[in-house]
Amino acid sequence: MSQASNKVFANGWMAAVYLFLYLPIITLVVFSFNDSKLVTVWSHASTRWYSALMQDSDLLSAVFLSLKIAFLSALMSVFFGTFTAFALNRYTRFRGRTLLSSMSTTPLVMPDVIVGLSLLLMLVSLQHWLGYPQRGLFTILLGHALLGTAYAAVVVTSRLKEMDGKLDEAAMDLGAKPLQVFTLVTFPLLIPALVSAFLLTFTLSFDDVVLSSFLSGPGYNTMPMVIFSRARLGLNPTINAVATVTITVVTIAVIASSFYTSHIERKRKREMAFAYSDANN
């Protein structure tokens, strides 16, 4: 009896958690196909707001700006994050390494508001003294790359740590110069970590609103900024439509990537089993 009731409780608990996670998203998707102008009242199905989205040049340009910033800042983050990870893990020990290594991750725990504010203060005074940079795309990019670098460094560091340091030595032992060791051995093995660091920092930048608000200038509104400002004026179902498009794209990407990794893993297991049965013959 108690086992059965345990099971009911466990299943109910799980259902509640998943409802809590997905009900808002499902509601949003459903209401993006609602004909009514009121977000909370269902009238009948239509794709009216999707057509409206196509006409909404402000929102569309914000989406493209966000994509552009996310792409570029993710590239920058991975680039600088990789360097940081290397400096902190592969160099011989140097004085203050522990301090530097914990300092490199402060942006992760520092509230975005403070990071944004301090960056803004720095940029304003820079502009005052040098007349450069104008706030806009470049400054948002800078802020996102700053945050992203810290995240990318963490991802690459964990991969570097689990990677066999002996591989570098083996390459060197076989005559590879330090640069060749990187291009021929370390880099190819780091690619999976670089891809996941890219995806992580891309999403981080894509949904950031705090840093962007501090660092953007006139005419540079990212998608989250537009959604946020419109939400304050009363919700418009066009927002639901753009959100649904985003969710669809993200879902497809996530499913595809998890299918791909599980495929690779299964193939590897099959091959290993084959190799061992082969070795015994």
């Binding site: 002996k166 591989l167 083996a170």
Partner: peptide, 10 residues
């Protein structure tokens, strides 16, 4: 040249 303990094959 060295043969490593855990082989260190690429």
């Amino acid at each position: 040249n060295m043969m490593f303990q855990s082989y260190a094959l690429f």
